[in-house]
Computed example of a mutant assay.
Amino acid sequence: MVVRILVILLVVLILLGLGGFFWINSRIVTVDSLTDYDGRPAATPGEDWLLVGSDSRAGLSAAQRRKLATGRAVGKRTDTMMLLHIPSGSGKPTLVSLPRDSYVPIDGHGSDKLNAAYAFGGPKLLAKTIEKVTDIRIDHYMEIGFGGFVGIVDAIGGVNICVKQNIKDPKAGIDLKKGCQDMDGGTALGYVRTRATGAIPDFERTQRQRQFFAAVVKKAAGPGVLANPFRSVPLAMSATDSVAVDPGTGAFDLLSLGLAMSDDPIATAVPIGSLPTINGASVVKWDTQRALRLFKALAEDKPVPKDVLAK
């Protein structure tokens, strides 16, 4: 009798899981982002994701924009770009921040800041630019805007972030004290957007973005969310409403991403060489030799040399 009940429960759970899979898959929003072109890097071992946070205000009312201090800019630009490598073996994933002010060659536009690639040609040109400067073929693309960012954080009940210093930034709508604290979606958005800290604001931002992204995915993949339908269902709805992925990415791929991020990935940034001013704009130039060693290790699915890792 007990075995029979357990079998029935198992069947019900499997059916619910399958139903949830098809439901989530049917809600996924796609965006053309990964295309073939002459000279595209060949497929490499492991799985490589391009994770993009845009400053799109889509879906936010005027009142929400005021509350979140997002401004009224039209269109959208890339505020965050990270490359996640999930190894084919048992090693830890590696999450690499790509500073938006990185000065790189962009097809048809000479050299410019990395986030200009998105402004010039959307996700396709951004992905192509990153593939060409890293020599890594991107397998999956995922993008989220301001509104979706806030919704996902609130759906999981906020995140706990340890702030290294007091941060007051009216432009980002935050006034934070040093120390670990729970943040709702609006506060977390201001925390990762602010440029009011550090001698190298763009570098400081990438550190906070990696810290935040890891905290969100780790909590979302935890039993406190997954086993609680009052958390997991709103999270699934918020994520599928606000996240756009390439057409080849489905629910199982997103699960793989979540599992990788919950495995405490190695978090780093592209090694910086210099911070010159070009055509009146401050840009970030990579340390070419160290950057090439970093990307070569990822392309070959090998451990990244410690001397190229940035904290």
Rank of each mutant, 00 (worst) to 15 (best):
L6Y: 06
V7H: 06
V7I: 15
V11S: 07
V11A: 15
V11P: 07
L15M: 05
G17E: 07
G17T: 12
F21A: 14
R27E: 06
V31E: 01
D38Y: 09
G39C: 01
P41S: 02
A42H: 04
G46A: 00
D48H: 14
L50M: 13
L50N: 15
L51E: 08
S54F: 07
S56P: 10
S56T: 13
G59H: 07
R65D: 15
A73N: 11
V74A: 15
R77H: 04
T80N: 03
M81T: 15
M82Y: 12
I86M: 01
I86R: 00
P87T: 10
G91P: 00
T94H: 02
T94L: 03
L95I: 08
S97I: 13
S97L: 10
L98W: 08
R100Y: 12
D101F: 03
V104W: 09
I106R: 06
D107H: 12
G108S: 08
H109C: 08
S111A: 11
S111K: 14
D112P: 03
K113M: 06
A117Q: 12
K124V: 05
L126R: 05
T129H: 04
V133Q: 10
V133H: 04
T134I: 05
T134D: 13
T134V: 08
I136W: 01
R137P: 03
M142E: 01
F146Q: 00
F149P: 04
G151S: 14
A155Q: 03
I156N: 04
G158K: 00
V159F: 13
I161V: 10
V163Q: 14
N166H: 13
N166I: 04
I167D: 05
K168W: 00
P170Q: 02
K171P: 00
A172R: 12
G179E: 09
G179Y: 12
D182M: 10
G185M: 01
Y191P: 06
Y191M: 09
R193C: 00
T194R: 14
A196V: 10
T197N: 07
T197W: 07
I200A: 14
I200P: 14
I200R: 12
T206H: 01
Q207T: 09
Q207W: 03
R208C: 11
Q209P: 03
R210S: 15
F213Y: 11
A214T: 15
A215K: 09
K218F: 10
K219V: 13
K219L: 15
P223V: 03
G224C: 03
G224Q: 09
V225R: 06
L226Q: 02
A227T: 09
F230L: 12
V233C: 02
S238A: 15
S242K: 06
V245I: 10
D246G: 12
G250I: 11
S256T: 15
L257A: 01
G258M: 05
G258I: 01
G258W: 03
L259G: 03
D264M: 00
T268Y: 06
V270N: 06
P271Q: 09
P271M: 07
N279T: 07
G280H: 11
A281L: 14
V284C: 01
V284T: 02
T288Y: 10
T288A: 13
R290Q: 12
A291P: 06
F295Q: 04
L298N: 02
D301F: 04
K302A: 13
K311H: 14
